[in-house]
């Protein structure tokens, strides 16, 4: 903690009492957070843990138990499939739309933007219930297509809101120059735009990937037994606590934590932390 106590931008290094207090609170927060994750991980390796500070002995067998009991190989496969398809489809739908939004000013543009911001602003559980009801009526819910469709609802707008500012900062003169030199629309797209778009597309896809793997509500409302993703499987296991050993639930939680952290480490190479949690662009000007 001591190393982080530094003065604000003004450069004065004299720590004030309230600054110290604030850092203590932050430290306390992280300490609890660490202990929270650690108690799950420690328990998943423990044999018996009752009333003591640490389990009696350590073992790996809860992991193989959890893997078998919860059918984790198929759950992970489903999670991967859902995430990859959602990323691919949301890019296919979202990127062209962001191009149009970035390059054109047209009547009703504000309305269109509001329409794209809404699915990100409205919490999933609110629109998830009518959406799942509709998908059940159409016999789409309870299967992979239903889960994918539901997860696309926030993913497509998210791609659009990430990509639009990205495309805006690509100079349109580059395209005009290519066209003037005789390039067709097709080759402008393939040889000029696509290479320039790659970093943005990479950032958008990793953001959508992390959000889709972590998306609980929409998947929970639309998934059936064969289309359960990892986070929903974890919820079901915690909710039905008592049926299975708590340690194997914790083992699954540790697997989930591990895969999320791997994704997070990859994600943070391409995007800044704030982008992961908030809308990529600040509040549209009012």
């Amino acid at each position: 903690m001591a190393t982080t106590i530094a003065g604000p931008a003004s450069g004065r290094a004299r720590p004030r009492w309230w600054a110290v207090a604030v850092w203590l609170v932050v430290g306390f927060f992280f300490l609890n957070l660490l202990a929270l994750v650690a108690s799950v991980v420690v328990d998943s390796f423990g044999t018996r843990w009752f009333g003591t500070w640490l389990p009696e002995a350590f073992t790996f067998h809860w992991y193989s138990d959890a893997w078998r009991e919860f059918g984790l190989s198929s759950v992970l496969l489903v999670t991967l499939e859902v995430a990859v398809v959602v990323v691919a489809v949301s890019l296919l739908i979202g990127v062209p739309a962001s191009y149009a939004l970035a390059r054109r000013e047209f009547p009703g543009k504000r309305l269109v933007m509001v329409l794209f911001v809404l699915p990100i602003l409205v919490p999933p559980i609110t629109y998830g219930i009518p959406l799942a009801t509709l998908l059940y009526k159409l016999h789409l819910a309870g299967s992979m297509p239903g889960v994918i469709l539901a997860n696309l609802v926030p993913a497509v707008p998210f791609v659009i809101l990430t990509m639009t500012p990205f495309i805006e900062q690509i100079d349109p003169k580059i395209e005009s120059a290519a066209r003037m030199c005789g390039a067709s629309t097709r080759s402008i797209f393939l040889h000029v735009l696509t290479p320039l778009l790659v970093p943005g597309i990479l950032a958008a896809s990793i953001l959508v990937l992390v959000r889709t793997v972590g998306m609980f509500e929409l998947t929970f409302l639309t998934a059936g037994p064969s289309s359960t993703t990892l986070v929903v499987a974890l919820y079901n296991a915690v909710f039905a606590a008592g049926i299975r050993a708590n340690q194997s639930v914790d083992a699954m939680a540790a697997i989930y934590t591990g895969s999320m952290l791997v994704l997070l480490v990859i994600a943070l190479r391409y995007v800044n932390p704030t982008q992961l949690v908030t809308r990529p662009r600040e509040e549209p000007a009012e």
Partner: peptide, 11 residues
């Protein structure tokens, strides 16, 4: 935030 509410709950 990335870990999400389900894991937080179990923790």
């Amino acid at each position: 935030i990335t870990l999400g509410t389900v894991l937080t709950a179990q923790g």
